[in-house]
């Protein structure tokens, strides 16, 4: 059987790639995609830990289901925010969005 570390390594690399996307992208939609990648990596971690440490408890999977729910809610609200922002300012480029700057 595959060692748990391999799954954790894949999840860690996925997480940092998402993090890199969040930091390096300037487009709000692409930043949200990076956040989704990070949440997905966390889910992979949770499921791998469930499978390898406590497969008779479904708690790890329930946790992952809650994370999926929150990710869906976050994507819906975030994308609605970007649409409202685009209507207001005509861009989703985050360097040009400085409504709160005094």
């Amino acid at each position: 059987m595959i060692p748990l570390s391999w799954y954790l390594a894949v999840a860690a690399i996925l997480f940092v790639i998402g993090f890199y996307g969040v930091l390096s992208r300037r487009n709000a939609i692409a930043i949200l995609m990076g956040i989704e990648l990070m949440l997905n990596a966390v889910n992979l971690n949770l499921v791998a830990f469930w499978r390898y440490t406590q497969p008779d408890q479904v708690a790890g999977q329930v946790f992952a289901i809650i994370v999926i729910t929150v990710a869906a809610a976050e994507a819906a609200v975030g994308l609605a925010l970007f649409i409202a922002l685009y209507r207001l300012r005509g861009t989703v480029h985050i360097d040009e969005i400085d409504l709160l700057r005094g």
């Binding site: 300037r26 939609i29 819906a76 970007f82 480029h93």
Partner: peptide, 19 residues
């Protein structure tokens, strides 16, 4: 949802990759 929003916002304003 992502593809819809990219379509609504307009792809030409989206591909600004380099900071």
């Amino acid at each position: 949802l992502f593809i819809f929003v990219v379509m609504l916002v307009g792809n030409e304003t989206v591909d600004d990759f380099v900071a």
